[in-house]
Design a binder for these strands. Structure first.
Length: 949
DNA sequence: GACACTGAGAA
DNA sequence: CTTCTCAGTGTCA
């Protein structure tokens, strides 16, 4: 049988995007600061294909200038697409150069997309007797598949699968690949901005194809549909036909398949090596040489193998994953276009040797404890029945102090026996000289506190460590493990099931599985610690870690365990009042609108206001095509239309009721009768804390009505009172100090009202003659500076026009010239170093600071200004919290610190201690950190949180 | 039940 | 113009 020639056509952008996003969590940046992720990702895929398949002919196809025809048909076509990321744009010229050096043809045609070029070439090659493989993950290509044209598709976890006619039939549930066009036209494609039929998703589209065969068939038979769906489809027939056209790949692009040009011959190895060297690719160079060292006329893949390309096992031995069947033909989920590194098949427990043992006899326990006490540093992880440490019970504890090894101590269900067992561990946990390592130790500490065990000694929390190393990333153990150890941990879902109906508790899992899971976590955490301890030193964040975040962890654990007392009865009466007011607003809104509808639905509201009542000629729309009913849009109309103010009031009161008044009483913990928030120490990129379940950092204060909620936060009993201590203007003081702006520093030193002072200088009037409006505008600019102002932003915030805003900002800078210097210095620093930092050296990396896209760059520049200010304030209050906590503990005060709200601390003060506490708190807060501007703290005392202000 | 979107609360 | 969390609606499953 004559050998049939094989042509591979590579969809360049698809692979480049895939490669780029594969590295998105830790982009490859070379010493020149170039982001080479996209180049590396693309080259990895290309070499991979060449190595596996040894094609006779190969070309790489690019888009150029978008599809003119499609834009003409539908102007929104691809319009919503995000700007091509910087890292990809810069990669393109490099990729072109590499391809040239490799003697691989680059196919582009102005005004056509790669899809069209590939489609056209594949049809031409088919006529000449070739088998064509389209290398792309993009499912749109399925429409091109014939007996001789295949998709060659990279799959999740590494490897490829080939889609021929049978695969396409099965995947899309169609008879012919051509129906894929109808399928895509119906369900639409948000990334290509193909609108599709409204209300039709993947499932419905498949149903329609089975029933009607095509878009036209569907539109001709809408009488067979019913309800809402029928109306929608009948109303959108044209949109459907247009969508189908947009989804159709063109086969008449003016390009020619010339077999000779497409031959994959020997690349200019030296030239490629040189380019790789410039880009600082080492592994890739080796890979490249290996790929081409074997001459390309090596025996081609045998025919039998070729038809089952997809079933080839990936080259790397350890490439085996828990996800079953991922290399089979039909598993790839259409809705799950995950983008992972092609070469990043990860290790798992199945592919890594380990020794995880559980301890189930008294003798083993004794031996284990003896051994445990001999260690200097131990990683542990508690397993519990739930996520709330106040209600959960211990199920077991895993320990590891040697990579790949560890022990699991299961706990009896009987809590008396559990307490007996934990007592045996007390000497370990309370040992001052054994270092304890963990991921999110705050949880374990709170859990153990329930059993009256205190965790003493040095701590190392891998989550906190990574937060300091890269605050912009996420810090789940799974993510950390995959990024830093290239290891996929057993997911908790495989043990207890997906959340929802059938999820079980950890204690119902067989102990062998508990062991594998729990010890693996401890093992991984131990390995991460080894990784991070060096990085902390490199970034110089060791001090921040040792002196701030780690000590703070204990403080937060204590605050969370303490909780705060809530006056449920008060909230109940408040709720009833709100109910009445909301009902009466509802009534008058319905009257004004002439019908009843759901006011809480922006969609229905938009239709009433702008279609029925036609309050405005050209209503603003949101990006999803609805009428915008946002606050700023409506308040603009409020003076002209009575109904608007009522709607705004309705919204305000509903929010108040649902989020605070009704929700808070349900958050009271039954066991303690108090509300226990959870402070997240590793989510805010600037270094702030965040609070949730419930969020006690956004309790209303600005409006009279909202403020009432604060009355519900009360002292624990009559012997106590609440103290609120807040830093006055801490962020402005920080920017004044850091910029050395003397005028502003003086104002603070003299104890002036800073906004009035600013207004007096900017508007050139004596401070006592500043009007309310002037002060208010000055205040907005002062805050604007902290956030990185623009005239545009300012005019949005105030009633000033863009020009007036600009003038105001200019005078502002003229008044405070050093501020302007400081801002540009921060931006320059970020450009040079790629990060900015706080007074304590907390870093925030700003990868977009040199972006060529002005919007993206602008955002990074504002971050460069804001992050050090907001972050320094966070640093300072954290120091104060640690010091105050120490004093409260050391002085055996009954007073407890309860809440932190960014620049405010709230205490439950034992009345006899009040005067001492006031002095203590004020002193510690004002002296937490020395700046060239005094820090000023306001104190308030009261029988509830509102009074304390 | 999960997810996207919108809107609104705080510093 | 910065940093967050939460609730309700609507849609697809």
């Amino acid at each position: 049988m004559p050998e049939q020639k094989r042509l591979f056509l590579v969809d360049a952008y698809a692979l480049i995007f895939r490669g780029y996003y594969a590295f998105i969590k830790n982009p490859r940046i070379n010493s020149k600061g170039e982001d080479t992720s996209a180049i590396m990702g693309f080259m990895n895929s290309l070499l991979d294909v060449i190595k596996r398949e040894r094609p006779d002919h190969l070309a790489v196809c690019f888009d150029k200038g978008g599809s003119a025809d499609r834009v003409e048909m539908f102007e929104a076509y691809k319009a919503n697409r995000d700007e091509t990321p910087e890292g990809i744009r810069t990669a393109i010229p490099h990729i072109h150069n590499i391809l040239k050096a490799m003697h691989i043809p680059i196919m582009v045609k102005e005004g056509y997309e790669a899809d069209d070029v590939i489609g056209t070439l594949s049809r031409q090659a088919e006529k000449e007797g070739y088998k064509t493989y389209m290398v792309t993950p993009d499912k749109d290509f399925a429409q091109l598949v014939t007996e001789n044209i295949f998709m060659y598709r990279p799959v999740f976890g590494g490897g490829y699968e080939t889609w021929g006619i049978p695969e396409v039939q099965k995947k899309f549930e169609v008879d012919s690949p051509l129906q894929v066009i109808d399928f895509l036209g119906m369900m639409g494609d948000s990334s290509d901005n193909i609108p599709g039929l409204p209300g039709v998703g993947e499932k419905t589209a498949k149903k329609f194809i089975a029933q009607f065969g095509s878009m036209e068939g569907l539109l001709a038979n809408t009488n067979q549909l019913k309800g809402k769906m029928k109306e929608k489809i009948e109303a959108n027939g044209e949109l459907g036909l247009l969508s189908k056209k947009l989804a159709t790949i063109m086969l008449d692009v003016p390009v020619t398949f010339n077999a000779k040009d497409f031959e994959l011959d020997h690349p200019d190895i030296e030239a490629v090596k040189q380019i790789f060297q410039d880009l600082e690719f080492r592994r890739l160079t080796e890979n490249f040489i290996k790929t081409f060292a074997v001459s390309t006329d090596e025996t081609p893949v045998e025919e039998t193998k070729r038809n089952t390309i997809s079933e080839q096992k990936p080259t790397r031995k350890e490439t085996k994953s828990a996800g079953a069947g991922q290399f089979s033909l039909f598993e790839t989920d259409l809705s799950n276009e995950q983008q992972v590194p092609l070469e990043h098949s990860r290790k798992t427990a199945d592919t890594t040797s380990h020794f995880y043992q559980y301890i189930n006899t008294n003798l083993a326990t004794k031996l284990f404890l003896t051994n445990l006490m001999k260690q200097h540093s131990v990683c542990f992880d508690t397993e519990t029945t739930g996520l709330n440490p106040l209600t959960a019970q211990l199920v077991g504890i895993a320990f590891s102090w040697e990579v790949g090894k560890g022990f699991y101590l299961p706990f009896p269900k009987d809590q008396k026996k559990a307490q007996e067992l934990i007592e045996e561990l007390r000497p370990f946990f309370e040992n001052e000289t054994i270092e304890k390592i963990g991921q999110n130790l705050k949880y374990d500490i709170k859990m153990l506190a329930k059993y009256n065990i205190e965790v003493k000694g040095k701590l190392f929390d891998t989550m906190l460590a990574h937060y300091l190393i890269n605050p912009d990333m996420r810090h789940n153990m799974d993510v950390l493990s995959e990024t830093y150890l290239n290891y996929t941990p057993i997911s908790i879902e495989t043990l207890i099931g997906k959340k929802g109906k059938n999820q079980i508790s950890m204690e119902e899992v067989p102990v062998e599985k508990q062991t594998e899971y729990a010890v693996e976590d401890a093992d991984i955490t131990l390995q991460l610690k080894e990784h991070f301890k060096n990085e902390l030193g490199e970034a110089n964040t060791q001090k921040l870690f040792d002196d701030i975040e780690i000590p703070l962890l204990r403080v937060l654990a204590a605050m969370e365990l303490e909780g705060i007392n809530l006056d449920k009865g008060f909230l109940n009466t408040l709720s009833e009042q709100l109910n009445k007011d909301i009902a009466s607003l509802e009534k008058s809104i319905y009257e004004a609108a002439g019908e009843t509808f759901n006011i809480a639905s922006p969609k229905q509201l938009g239709i009433i206001l702008f279609e029925k009542m036609k309050l405005v000629d050209k209503p603003k729309k949101t990006k999803s095509g609805q009428y915008s009913t946002a606050e700023d849009v409506l308040s603009y109309l409020a003076k002209d239309h009575n109904i608007i103010q009522k709607i705004l009031d309705f919204r305000g009161l509903s929010k108040l009721k649902s989020t605070y008044v009704d929700a808070l009483p349900n958050q009271v913990e039954e066991t303690t009768g108090r509300v226990h928030t959870d402070y997240m120490q590793t989510v805010a990129a600037t270094g702030r804390l965040s609070s949730n379940n419930p969020n006690l950092q956004n309790i209303p204060i600005r409006t009279e009505r909202g403020r009432q909620v604060r009355k519900a936060f009360i002292p624990r009993n009559d012997d106590y009172t609440l103290l609120a201590a807040d830093y006055s203007q801490i962020e402005l003081r920080i920017i004044a100090a850091l910029s050395q702006e003397k005028t502003m520093i003086e104002a603070f030193k003299n104890g002036e009202d800073i906004h009035a002072s600013t207004a007096s200088k900017v508007f050139n009037v004596p401070i006592e003659e500043v009007t309310r409006e002037q002060r208010s505008n000055a205040k907005t600019v002062n805050f604007g500076i902290i956030y990185g102002v623009s005239a545009f932003g300012l005019s949005n915030q105030t009633n000033l026009s863009r020009a007036e805003s600009k003038a105001l900002i200019d005078t502002y800078y003229a008044t405070y010239p050093k501020l302007r210097n400081y801002i540009s210095e921060q931006v320059d620093f970020a450009r040079d170093h790629g990060y900015v930092q706080t007074v304590l050296g907390r870093r925030r990396y700003l990868k977009d600071i040199n972006s060529r896209n002005a919007v993206v760059r602008g955002a990074a520049e504002r971050n460069a200004v804001n992050a050090p200010i907001q972050g320094s304030a966070a640093d300072i209050i954290k120091i104060a919290m640690i010091n105050i906590y120490k004093k409260l503990e050391g002085g055996h005060f009954k007073t407890k610190m309860l809440l932190q709200v960014h620049d405010e601390l709230v205490f439950d003060v034992y009345k006899p201690e009040l005067e001492a506490i006031k002095t203590l708190v004020k002193t510690e807060m004002e002296n937490a950190y020395k700046l060239d501007v005094p820090l000023d703290v306001d104190l308030g005392v009261g029988n509830n949180w509102l009074e304390a202000h």
